[in-house]
Design a protein around this nucleic acid. Structure first.
Ligand SMILES: [Mn+2]
Ligand SMILES: [Mn+2]
Ligand SMILES: [Zn+2]
Ligand SMILES: [Zn+2]
Lengths: 173, 173
DNA sequence: GCTAATATTGAGACTCATTCTCAATAGACT
DNA sequence: AGTCTATTGAGAATGAGTCTCAATATTAGC
C-alpha cells in the first residue's frame, strides 16, 4: 500500500514537536485497536482513516465534512462507514458529539486526552467556543450526587451570539 | 362553539386552588396572544388547544404524544400544525425543548413562570429528573461573561442511570 | 503465503422526525 | 356580511441516520 502519509495539519499543541505528535497519534490508535480487539472487531483502512481525519482536523467536524475530506483519499468510502465508525469511537470514549443544533446533523470532536470542556455556540456565525469551568463541574457533580444519579455523560451547550457577532449587531440597528 | 372544557389534570401546584389555576391559564394565553398580535398572526382554536395541552400535561411531551392527545378533541388536527405552534411558543419563551436524545424526536415543556432548571435523563427508563443548581448557573454566567458571549438559551442535560435503575443493575450482574 | 472463518464495506433502500406546498378555510377588521 | 390575510391539514418532500446484502478485507491458524 505505502500510501503517502495523509496531509494532516498538526494539532497545535504538537506543532513544534513532531515526535510527540507521532506518539500521541499511535497511543490513540492503540486505544482504538484495543477496543476493537476486546469486541472481536477488526481494524480496517477505513476505520484508521476516519480516526486520522478526526485527529488531523482541529475542529468539530460533521459527517458530511468528513465525507468530503475522506473521499479525496478514498473516493469509494461510504457515509455509512463513517457513521458506524464514529459510533465505535464514541463507545470507547475517543470521540464526543457536540452541537446537535436544529439544522444540519451532529458534529464530533476528538476527546482523547483533552480536558473536559463545554461549548458556547454562536447562532449567527456557527462558531463554537470551548470553555472550561471547574466550579461549574463541581456543582454539577454535587447535584448529581444529591439525586442519586449515575452520570454517564453530559451535554452543556450555550446558544447565543459570540463577541464578534454581538459587535456587528450594535453597529446596525 | 361552547365545547366542553378540556379534561385537564390540574398542574400540581394549583391542585388546591382552581381560581389561581384559571388565572395562570389566562395569563399565559394572554402572553401568547400578545406575541401573535405583535407579529400580525392570528389566534386559532388549534393554537389554543395546543397550548392548553402543554399546560395540562405535567410532563415533557413529544409531538407524537401531543398528537394523540389532541386528536381526541379534534380528530382532524395535523402534525404540521403542532410543529408550527410549538415553534411559535418557543419564540415567545413559553415553551422549551428538552432531551433531543438519539432515538425519538424532541420533547417539550411549558416554561412560563417556572424557575429555570436542567435535566438528568435516564438512558435506561427514559425518566427525566429536573434539578436546579443556582451555584452552577452562577459559574456558568461567569464563564459567559468571561468570553464576551451573549447567551440566548442553554441546554444542560446529564445522561446516565436514575437511582432506581442503578439499583436494579447491582442486583443482576 | 494460503485458507477458512468472520467481520466489514459501500450502494442504495429504508425510516422517521420535521418541513414544505398548496388549495380550502377560518380569523380579524370594518 | 365582505375583504384581506393568515392558517390549516393532507400529503409530498427533505435529510440525517440506519439497515440490508452481496462482494471483499482482515485475522488467526496452518
Ligand atoms: Mn469541543
Ligand atoms: Mn423540565
Ligand atoms: Zn458569531
Ligand atoms: Zn431510570
Amino acid at each position: 500500500m505505502a500510501a503517502k502519509q495523509a496531509e494532516v495539519t498538526l494539532f497545535p499543541r504538537y506543532a513544534q514537536k513532531p515526535e510527540k505528535y507521532q506518539q500521541w497519534l499511535s497511543s490513540i490508535q492503540e486505544r482504538f485497536q484495543e477496543h476493537l480487539g476486546r469486541r472481536g472487531l477488526k481494524l480496517t483502512h477505513q476505520r484508521e482513516e476516519i480516526l486520522r481525519c478526526l485527529m488531523a482536523a482541529e475542529k468539530h467536524l460533521g459527517v458530511e465534512e468528513m465525507y468530503t475530506i475522506l473521499k479525496k483519499q478514498d473516493p469509494l468510502i461510504g457515509r455509512a462507514t463513517i457513521f458506524r465508525t464514529i459510533k465505535l469511537l464514541q463507545e470507547c470514549g475517543l470521540v464526543a458529539e457536540v452541537g446537535v443544533f436544529q439544522n444540519g446533523g451532529a458534529k464530533f470532536e476528538l476527546k482523547a486526552d483533552r480536558p473536559h470542556h463545554d461549548h458556547m455556540i454562536c447562532v449567527e456565525c456557527g462558531r463554537i467556543i470551548e470553555f472550561q469551568s471547574p466550579m461549574m463541574e463541581r456543582f454539577q457533580d454535587e447535584a448529581i450526587k444529591r439525586h442519586g444519579f449515575l452520570a454517564l455523560w453530559h451535554r452543556h451547550e450555550i446558544f447565543g451570539r459570540c463577541a464578534a457577532c454581538s459587535k456587528k449587531r450594535t453597529g446596525t440597528p
